[in-house]
């Protein structure tokens, strides 16, 4: 997985340092994720930027069984989600929470980093607003 492209190698290296990197096109003024070699709209160079780590849940599913993945098969049930980051990009992620039943679409989440299979990857946890 390290060799999808060079930028992806740097993305996972940054995760080890608890940093979530996106790309930004200074011409199109848009954020890009996943990481690419150039802007898919204007073909110009992209800059690496650190994400705010804030986002919201677009959708989720509780994975009870996963026969396709030996590692994730061991950690069922888990919550697989797609989150939209504040920067407007979408990311697959796990939602880490003790309150699985409270998860909702549109819920605010923030990034945390989890170690799995010897590798640090981003995950998200719910942000509960003070009432």
């Amino acid at each position: 997985m390290d060799f999808f492209n060079e930028a992806t190698k740097h993305f996972f290296a940054a995760c080890e340092k608890q940093k979530l990197w996106l790309q930004h096109c200074p011409v199109c003024q848009k954020h890009i994720f996943y990481l690419r070699g150039f802007c898919p709209e204007c073909l110009g160079p992209l800059e690496l930027v650190e994400a705010t780590g804030k986002g919201k849940i677009i959708s989720y599913t509780i994975v009870e069984k996963n026969p396709m993945d030996p590692y994730f098969a061991q950690i069922t049930p888990y919550i697989a989600a797609i989150v939209e980051l504040a920067e407007g990009v979408f990311m697959y992620t796990r939602i880490i929470t003790d309150e699985t039943n409270d998860i909702t679409i549109g819920q605010d989440v923030e990034v945390i980093f989890v170690k799995q299979n010897g590798k640090t990857v981003p995950a998200f946890q719910p942000v509960y607003q003070a009432r």
Binding site: M1, D2, F4, T8, F12, Y34, S59, Y60, T61, I62, V63, N66, P67, M68, D69, Y71, F72, A73, Y78, A80, A81, I82, M91, Y92, T93, R94, Q116, N117, K119, V121, P122
Partner: peptide
Amino acid sequence: EAYQKPFIGAGINQHYGLV
């Protein structure tokens, strides 16, 4: 391999659950 598997695990079922 790079942008799905480490995040939510390999497989297809998750996607249709999300939808």
